[in-house]
Design a protein around this nucleic acid. Structure first.
Lengths: 198, 198
DNA sequence: GTTGCCCGTGGCACTCGGTGCCTCTAGCGT
DNA sequence: ACGCTAGAGGCACCGAGTGCCACGGGCAAC
């Protein structure tokens, strides 16, 4: 790979970053539905056509590099020891993959606030979470010696992801001191089978 | 209310039924994205404009009267005794609200197959399920003496709904003999905190 | 019966998200 | 100077969804 390819890739990432930043600000200020692609492109100093080419869709402008996120989750699960309980491993992977640097937290808050409150983004999130679920279900299946499509692996995947989402909501609303803390609380409740409610 | 209102309401329900039936068949045959509103309207013997007026959106054509579904779930939870455990009550409500007559099962299968496999419908489902979650979270909060926005009520709502969705998948794939059976299995796993995985 | 009202319906025009196709241009190696 | 490549812009098009207006049939009051 010649040097030029790297430079050009950097250029594309630059425009991507500009677009995502502009989109995040405009969405937060005026609401997701109220902002048009044309306005985002103008704010990012580019064109409508380039917007779609670099970020794919309006919703994707909010998610950033979520595929990399999922890949990291998969790697973490792969490299977790078989001696640690399954639920603990999943919790650990969720905590570590969401261990953001303090300076990144404001942007994360902005992003998650949009995803959790804007209906269109809430709907789109299901598609992204499905990728996460597949990864987790695959891991649970491997640990249990079952098929990834069997009930328990799927259930663990969706239930833990539900716990993670709830933890995000709690963190966002200020009810939890930290994201890791909220995740541990939610997973704890889940793993105990909701004592007192049975 | 004069008799005419009832008759006219019936007329509107007739066109709604025609549209939903045509949409379900076309979607199942050719795929959700491949079918245009115009084609559905033509198959239902009506117009594009009437389609949007009666069913609201393309995705809503698949969901039928889901609001009534949610209302029934709320009523069932309201009338469940306080002596029965919370999770048991939620399971019971889910089982009862999904207790379809045998002749309705084929249509239900068709509907759920679309919702669980078509990406656009999968995304839209999140919005519908959010209504369910609000109802369940409200019930759990009342039983626990907590706020509906607190972590545990929200977590129970999303986790039980995840269990219900997984149960639907299992039923649809033929892995479970009946929907009620799949629901009981999934809720059982959830309430036990996934023994063997901790 | 005629008039006026209500309401389901259809048509039309418009916005906006998303895509395919073509072109331009800047940077590169030969 | 030449061609190649890839990011970028422009343009036309499709389809979902909406606002507005017009038509028509049933119904009630006069």
């Amino acid at each position: 790979m010649p040097v030029t390819d790297v430079l050009r890739a950097d250029l594309r990432e630059d425009t991507r970053a500009r677009i995502e930043q502009a989109a995040l600000e405009l969405f937060s200020a005026a609401g997701f539905e109220q902002v048009t692609i044309e306005e985002i492109a103008a704010a990012a100093g580019t064109s409508r056509r380039t917007f779609f080419r670099t970020v794919g869709s309006k919703a994707d402008a909010v998610w950033g590099d979520f595929d990399g996120h999922v890949d990291r989750l998969a790697t973490l699960l792969e490299h977790s020891g078989d001696d640690v309980p399954v639920l603990t491993a999943v919790l650990g992977a969720y905590v570590e993959v969401n261990d953001y640097a303090p300076e990144d937290l404001p942007v994360l808050r902005q992003r998650m606030r949009l995803i959790l409150t804007e209906p269109a983004l809430q709907a789109h999130s299901q598609l992204r979470y499905a990728d996460v679920d597949r990864v987790v279900a695959g891991y649970v299946a491997r640990r249990c010696g079952e098929q990834p499509t069997a009930l328990v692996p799927r259930l663990v995947a969706t239930a833990t992801r539900a716990a993670a989402t709830t933890a995000f909501e709690a963190w966002l609303s200020g009810a939890a001191p930290s994201l890791a803390d909220a995740l541990r609380t939610a997973f704890g409740q889940l793993a105990e089978g909701f004592p007192g409610l049975r």
